[in-house]
Structures are given as structure tokens and as C-alpha cells.
Design a binder for these strands. Sequence first.
DNA 1: CAAAAATAGTCAGAACATCTGACCATCGTC
DNA 2: GACGATGGTCAGATGTTCTGACTATTTTTG
Lengths: 145, 145
Amino acid sequence: MAGEPSLGVLLFIAYRAMENRAFDAVVAAGRDDITMAQAKLLQRVNEEGSRLGELAESAQVTKQTAGYLVDQLEAAGYVERRPDPNDARARLVCLTDHACSIRPVADAAVAEVEAEWAAHLGGRRMAQLREALARLREIADPSAK
Amino acid sequence: MAGEPSLGVLLFIAYRAMENRAFDAVVAAGRDDITMAQAKLLQRVNEEGSRLGELAESAQVTKQTAGYLVDQLEAAGYVERRPDPNDARARLVCLTDHACSIRPVADAAVAEVEAEWAAHLGGRRMAQLREALARLREIADPSAK
DNA sequence: CAAAAATAGTCAGAACATCTGACCATCGTC
DNA sequence: GACGATGGTCAGATGTTCTGACTATTTTTG
């Protein structure tokens, strides 16, 4: 297995490398009151506010788990729940200013990793990689079908 | 975010799609006495036997966590710990016949997913994807550096 | 339009996975 | 042979995740 890691393992390596770098940058910037599981959800909150079910589906956890994590993000001041004007059943999870202040840090880390990858692969291959993954999403994303 | 998911999210989607399909196939084949965390380790056990530390590093968990999961895999009969002839400190985690019997099932599911992806992307792009990820591993894999 | 079905979310409880810190045994080196 | 490094385990705590049951609201349907 060491000689020819499977595609799943290769995807895991790249995925974790990216997430680790972004998370480490946020922690290094002083936000150590957040866990990776929380960050995984926070990352998926839309600017206009996201529903709990959307977050759960995107992160591939149950609504209960998503609710548990959003509770903590809310307690830490990263998000707030607002009633959804269009649906009284739903509540919108919205980013607070506190959360918005860490986004640039995470984005910078992501940009740095992408630059390193592009330097290693070449810009052309890097663009092909992104393109291939985006297309794969069309058939592999349970929340997009 | 819905319009332009980040590279990290795209990697996650593909990674989870692959793992889910392989895991579901194993469960559907009757092996429901295994969890995804256990499978993640089992998948990484080498034919010649792997050290606990290697497994932990590859799966990106602590040695303690790996030990906990191997305990369960051992209890379920998927692996056995053998003394390492070359190092009395170490123990080799080896696959049992029981584990070997599920590998073809997982491999078939992976092959099926790869075929679907190749059909969607085209063989050329699929090969490029694999190539790019393999190259990325050179700089992104903490256990290969 | 009212009843039925689906959807959004929460509560409660249990099981699972993961980590940190401390510890023991063995290996490699000087 | 003493010493630091390596491979692994033990103990305890925390964090994450799930299943099942429930409420409230929206959507569908007869």
C-alpha cells in the first residue's frame, strides 16, 4: 500500500493538509477557543446565513451534531441564530463580526497553501486539479444533487 | 460560498464520497461490525504488517487513538498483533483471513467509483487528477516527509 | 379547506472517537 | 553501560457523533 496509495487516501492527504494549515493559522492568530469540528461548520456558514440542515448536509453530519456544534459557536460568539423571515420553522445561522475577523486569516492560509501547491505542480496542473474536483462535485456531492 | 466552494471543501467532497461508497459496500456485504474510524485504520494496514505508529501517522491520529481502534479490530478478528522480529519494542499489526475476505469487496466499490468518475471526467482528466494528487502527496503528506 | 405528509429543528441519552499526560520497555549511540 | 530517542500502553478526561422521540410549521392533497 505504501507504493501505490489509493485515490481515497490521496484525497485524504490533500484534504487534511489544507484543513490543518487553515486551522493552525486561525489558532496561531489567537483564536484557540475553537475546535476543528466547529471550524468545519463555521467554514460553511453563508454570508446571508445558513440553515442548520444545510450545514449538516454540507459537513456530512446529522442535524443533531450540527446543532451541538452551532451551540458552541454561538456561545463563543462566532455565530448567532436569527429567525428565518421566510419560514417560521427554520432559523438562520449567521456570522458575527467576531467570526468575520478570522476569515481573512483562514483565507490567507489557504492562499498560501494553494501557492505552494501551484509552485509544486505548475499553474496548469493546479488549474486542472481544481477543475476536475469541481466537476466531480456534480456527481459526488450529496448536498448538490 | 455556494457559488465557489474552496479547494478544501472540494477535496472533502471527493474524499468522503469515495470513503462512503467503499464503507457502504463493506457494510452491505454483511460486515456491519466495523465502524468508519476502524475502517480508516484497517485500510492502512500493510500486507506485511504495519506498526501502530505508522498507522497513527498515516491516519493522522495519535498513537493512543490508533491503539484503541486496533484493540477493537483485534477483538472483532480483523487484525492480530504479532511481535516484530526486528524490534522487541514494536508489535506488528497484521491482517487476518477475515480481513482479507473483505478487501475485494472494498476494492470493487472503489473501482466502481473510479469508473464513474472517469466516465464523468473523461479518462484523460481522471489520470491527470490522480497524477496531481500523487505529486501533491510529496509535499503534503506528513508521514512521507 | 382540512387532513395528511413532509420539513426544520430540538431534547435526551448513549456510544464512539480523540486527546493529554504519565509511564515502561527496548533500541541506538558514545 | 549510561543516555537520549523510539514504540507502545495505561488512565482519565473531553469532544464528537449517533439513534430515537418529540414539537412546530409548511406543503401537499383529496
